[in-house]
């Protein structure tokens, strides 16, 4: 252990050029430690076998599958709405823009359960019941999960998209226009490629938030095993029946799966830039 630590110190000698760098790296060290601790205490509690065993169970597989599908669809829908909205907020000076910007973060400001309750109330209105009867059923159904997660993913994605497009120089679009681009072409050939990494980040952040949601989706869709039981719901239910080992094992599975996806996306971003 001493040798490992010394080697760590040795490596840092090259990275630290001055005191400021040392402070920055300390912050990195602290952050990493905090996050690792969260994972390691759980792993220490359950051991390595319990999470792996959980992965083989049908219920757990279904919960993972459901979590992926719902959060995937929700975050795709969210980014599709977030891109034009974020672009408009970044480029167009319409009246009341400041108000709109404040409104868009409402889904993540209200507690997730309040969001679920609000969605339930929507489907009690006339329009809501019409939609439920003639189009899609949301309440207590899987589409309800997707809807709740959409709101959460969108609120985060739109903020990131907006700041991404703000960082793309509007003058580039101007020049493109004069070179013959319609507004759409200027967006597609200039702004969008330059905003690519920011948009991917917006998508990933929205997706991660959707994956981890419990309050909103469980309120509107219930927690029916095999139907609307996502991973976070499953974790809660296990905790509620005092099956701590299983709850923590599932928590590790969820964490691991999410982190792997985020890493893969990060590599994808880095490879093509």
């Amino acid at each position: 252990m001493v040798v490992a630590a010394r080697r760590l110190l040795g490596a840092q000698r090259d990275m630290i050029r001055n005191r400021f760098d040392a402070i920055l790296l300390t912050a990195v060290g602290v952050s990493t430690t905090l996050m690792l601790m969260l994972i390691l205490v759980q792993g220490a509690y359950t051991g390595a076998k319990a999470p792996l065993r959980a992965l083989t169970e049908h219920d757990v597989q279904h919960a993972i599958y459901l979590s992926f599908i719902t959060s995937g669809l929700a975050s795709v829908a969210a980014i599709l709405l977030a891109i034009p909205t974020g672009l408009a907020l970044a480029r167009i000076q319409f009246p009341g823009r400041w108000l709109v910007e404040s409104l868009l973060i409402v889904p993540i400001v209200m507690s997730p359960i309040s969001l679920g309750v609000a969605l339930l109330l929507i489907f009690r209105t006339e329009a809501g019941t019409w939609i439920e009867d003639h189009l899609i059923r949301f309440v207590f159904e899987v589409p309800g999960i997707i809807l709740a997660e959409f709101f959460l993913a969108y609120a985060i994605s739109v903020l990131v998209v907006r700041s991404t497009f703000s960082a793309v120089d509007a003058r580039l679009e101007q020049v493109a226009r004069f070179l013959g681009c319609t507004p759409w072409q200027a967006f597609r050939h200039v702004s969008l490629p330059l905003a690519r990494n920011g948009i991917i980040a917006a998508f990933v952040l929205g997706w991660v938030r959707a994956m981890g949601d419990f309050g909103a989706s469980s309120t509107i869709a219930g927690a029916v095993k095999g139907k609307t039981e996502t991973m976070p719901v499953s974790i809660y239910l296990n905790l509620a029946s005092v099956s701590l080992d299983r709850a923590i094992a599932l928590s590790l599975v969820l964490t691991f799966v999410t982190v792997v996806v985020v890493i893969m996306v990060g590599l994808l971003m880095r490879r093509s830039s």
């Binding site: 490992a4 630590a5 630290i16 040392a22 300390t26 060290g29 990493t32 690792l36 509690y45 359950t46």
Partner: peptide, 27 residues
């Protein structure tokens, strides 16, 4: 001396890692 101290500080994550994994109570 301050630089050395800060360098040591930046390496305590590694120490923490081993502490947490090593000193865990079994359920």
């Amino acid at each position: 001396r301050r630089c050395i101290l800060l360098r040591r500080l930046a390496s305590w994550p590694a120490v923490m890692f081993f502490l947490v994994v090593g000193c865990n109570e079994r359920p």
